[in-house]
């Protein structure tokens, strides 16, 4: 089936392009690892009582996996799509027989692949450098978080790209969205002691729920499979909303064309 072959080739070229883009590689792939090395090295030996006596180095692994999923899917996709749109690459592709589903699947799968790779690297660094072990029976919870999170944040990436007016604004808009959310969502440090209103605010958005779902799989107090269905449902709901916005407002051309 030619659609499938074309989609596979889209994954390939999209991945090559991302891996050659210094900003995408540094902010999307390297920075989460650097954060883990810095945070776990400096604060790694403390324990967090509010989280069942979890070691700080263990706490950072799921938090930064959440950050990595957001940066490889949402951040990279949204910025890349705006750049491609404003340079009329999308318009040009629209004028070829490239099937639209193959294009979307190609871009999203490439981003998903990077999210998987980054997660594996973060888990490996955590395990090898800081002895953070993944309890065997919660592995499905981590995989599920990765799947649901990547899918949802890909949809949100497509959605947000249509709301960004031009290429110059793209990194600024995206970072203005994700940076404050990282801080209030417990990615960099636990927010259990933060004011209730701030935690309530963070709970509206999907990053906190993704981080919570992943963190739960690492907490020593977790028993059973550790799947946080409610958190995952909130992330998935955001993804669906993103899908609707993307379907209604995605643009293939710069404004006015």
């Amino acid at each position: 089936m030619s659609e499938l072959r074309i989609a596979m080739e889209q994954v390939r070229y999209s991945t090559i392009s991302t891996l050659r883009n210094p900003a995408a590689v540094f902010f999307g792939l390297m920075l989460p690892v650097v954060f883990l090395l810095i945070f776990a090295t400096i604060f790694g030996n403390e324990t967090i009582e509010a989280r069942g006596g979890i070691k700080t180095s263990t706490y950072y692994v799921p938090g930064l996996v959440a950050l990595g999923i957001v940066s490889t899917t949402f951040v990279n996709l949204a910025i890349t799509l705006v750049v491609l749109r404003e340079n009329r690459v999308l318009k040009r592709l629209r004028g070829t027989p490239l099937p639209v589903p193959a294009f979307i699947a190609g871009r999203a799968s490439s981003a998903f692949g990077m999210a998987i790779a980054l997660t594996v690297v973060l888990l490996a660094v955590g395990r090898l450098a800081y002895g953070v072990s993944l309890p065997g029976n919660t592995i499905p919870a981590v995989v599920l978080g990765l799947l649901v999170g990547s899918a949802a944040f890909c949809c949100l990436g497509f959605a947000v790209s249509s709301l960004i007016p031009n290429e110059d604004a793209a990194p600024a808009v995206i970072n203005a969205i994700v940076l404050p959310l990282y801080f209030i969502s417990g990615v960099f440090f636990p927010t259990d002691d933060a004011p209730a209103w701030l935690n309530n605010l963070a709970s509206v958005f999907p990053i906190k729920h993704l981080a919570e779902a992943l963190l739960n799989a690492f907490e020593p107090s977790t028993t059973g499979a550790g799947i946080e269905w409610v958190d995952l449902a909130v992330v998935a709901a955001w993804g669906l909303a993103g899908l609707v916005v993307a379907a209604l407002s995605f643009r293939w051309t710069p404004k006015g064309e």
Binding site: I6, Y13, S17, V89
Partner: peptide, 28 residues
Amino acid sequence: IGIVLQSSKPDAYLTVRETLAEYAGFYP
């Protein structure tokens, strides 16, 4: 149909050959 737009810049990070191979793959 082949279309050359008034202004468009293909993906800056792919080579000429890669870009052409990508587009070639769209056609029968």
